[in-house]
Design a protein around this nucleic acid. Structure first.
Length: 486
RNA sequence: GUCCCCAUCGUCUAGGGGUUAGGACACCGGCCUUUCACGCCGGCAACAGGGGUUCGAAUCCCCUUGGGGACGCCA
């Protein structure tokens, strides 16, 4: 047995590359990562790709990219199960020597039949164990004849397996319920339950933090550890994340792949904070956690034992929170790819862009929306919202307001921030216009809408020429589309 | 069906024998205000049901119900 430092924590995240990493997987990865960091231990990644049929390298890349995006960093090279056949082989020989595995010559069809039989009788299916007590002469014969066979674990079926789960407490299973599961397939490859045990042993994993759906695999794995005379790791089974319909999270719930959240414009800070709060909490008040705070406060015993429903509203709220709390440079960096999607942004200077981000980021939910909002302001209205025009005509477009505004702005000497608003307010008051009316007409002209970031700021950043041309354009439009007298 | 896990506002949760059952999201009011947001203040809203144990149960035990998971030569 390899020597293991008692206080050294080693955990792993072990996804199978048979699909995109989703929120639930990320949460599991995060919990492992936080646990490792908070114990100054190691966080490892193992790709469980023993199913050659369904495993795809594209999924592996997706997993790697997802973790990288969230800065969930791993401490050792990625382990691929598909590359460890000889290791599995090595331990298999040991198990064979100990007499805890036996060859099974049942065919897939045989087993299928057993299964159907069980279903008919309404009893739970359990492999009959008919190859378990084959006379050794017969076994020898069949092996000599190269008859296709798997290897099964010889389960004593005479007791209980129990463990102290770090989130559920004691869980115990009656071994008589467990059948002799296959550990080696007829093609010589090894199955999940076996590989997990060998890898966890070899990688010196101290704590297995994984989804609740693995609880029923755990007794088999513990049995395997016991047959190798090894101590199983500590287990912490975290509850599943469910969709709003309380069903297990899947494609049906949309945004299945984590990278979709990135594409939609969510910040990694929000996503990490959000994932941490699904099934874990620190106290009765705190909801905002920085990465460091998570590391400092995370413990397994504060993981909830009941499943959580994915709540997009809360994610949105967190994203809005981080959108306005992160430093401007962090936002600019995350925003850059989204800005590139926007047309006609070339002429906007970096400084103005910064200002626009500053005033816009408080009113959007995602980076994508932020980029769109800024893009719209820069490009100007492609059309005017009908409702906005109607409301303006009815409430704000007092006679002379628009031409007066144009003339005023045309002659305005100082086109800069505090003075622009002061002068505009003065002008409005002198002419007996409500300031809100002036602002809304300006807003309609500049954005085509009555909802936008602060319009005074926008006007100043956009510059005199752009503002005047958009105002005249609105005037033309009003003339050509209804009774308008200026 | 069998085994395993779970059960506090609509959602995430705190609370683990004595609490006006706390917070957050969402929702609804109000204030602020150039619109929309932000922010602030306030409101609505929960211990699944039934039995025990106890002076006292959201909390401990049992049953019921409901939800989830697992029952593969998938992981």
């Amino acid at each position: 047995m390899k020597k293991r430092k008692d206080d050294m924590v080693r955990v792993r995240f072990a996804p199978s590359p048979t699909g995109n990493l989703h929120i639930g997987g990320v949460r599991t990865a995060l919990f492992n990562y936080l646990f490792a960091r908070s114990h100054k231990g190691a966080f490892l990644l193992r790709i469980e790709d023993t199913d050659l049929e369904r495993s795809k390298t594209a999924y592996t890349e997706h997993i790697l990219e997802s973790l990288k995006w969230l800065d969930i960093t791993i401490d050792e090279p990625v382990v691929f199960q598909s590359c460890r056949q000889s290791l599995y082989e090595h331990y298999f020989v040991i198990l064979k020597k100990k007499g805890v595995v036996y060859p099974c010559f049942c065919t897939v069809d045989d087993l299928q039949q057993e299964r159907e039989e069980a279903r008919k009788q309404g009893v739970p299916y359990c492999y009959s164990g008919r190859c378990r007590e084959l006379p050794s002469v017969e076994v020898e014969q069949k092996l000599q004849a190269c008859q296709s066979h798997t290897y099964r674990f010889f389960n004593e079926k005479n007791g209980t397996v129990k463990w102290q789960d770090r989130v559920h407490g004691i869980i115990s299973f009656d071994t008589s319920r467990l059948d002799d599961f296959i550990i080696r397939r007829s093609d010589g490859s090894f199955t999940y339950n076996y590989c997990v045990v060998i890898d966890d042993l070899d990688m010196e994993i101290t704590h297995v933090i994984r989804g609740d759906d693995h609880i029923s695999n755990t007794p088999r794995q513990i049995l395997l550890f016991q047959s190798l005379s090894e101590e199983p790791p500590a287990y912490a089974h975290v509850p599943m994340i469910l969709g709003p319909d309380r069903k297990r999270l899947s494609k049906r719930h949309g945004a299945c792949g984590l990278l979709n959240f990135k594409k939609e414009g969510y910040l990694k800070e929000a996503l990490v904070n959000f994932c941490a709060l699904m099934g874990w909490s620190w106290d009765d008040k705190t909801t905002i956690f920085s990465r460091q705070e998570l590391i400092d406060t995370f413990t397994l015993d504060k993981i909830s034992s009941s499943p959580a429903v994915f709540d997009k509203d809360k994610l949105n709220w967190l994203n809005r929170y981080y959108l306005r709390s992160l430093s401007l440079s962090q936002i600019m960096q995350a925003l850059a790819p989204f800005l590139r999607e926007e047309q006609q942004m070339e002429k906007i200077s970096h400084d103005i862009l910064l200002e626009l981000v500053k005033i816009s980021r408080e009113r959007v939910t995602t980076l994508k929306e932020l980029a769109e909002t800024i893009g719209k302001i820069c490009r100007g209205p492609s059309c005017y919202e009908e409702k906005a025009v109607r409301k303006c005509r009815k409430k704000f477009l007092r006679p002379g307001l628009l031409p007066g505004l144009i003339a005023f702005l045309n002659n305005l000497k100082e086109w800069s921030l505090p003075s622009f608003e002061e002068k505009l307010r003065e002008w409005a008051q002198q002419n007996d216009y409500k300031f809100v009316a002036v602002a809304q007409v300006l807003r309609l002209a500049l954005t085509g809408s009555l909802v936008s970031p602060p319009i005074i700021e926008c006007a100043v950043f956009l510059g005199r020429d752009t503002v005047l041309s958009r105002l005249s354009h609105l005037e033309q439009y009003l003339r050509s589309s209804g009774d308008y007298e200026g």
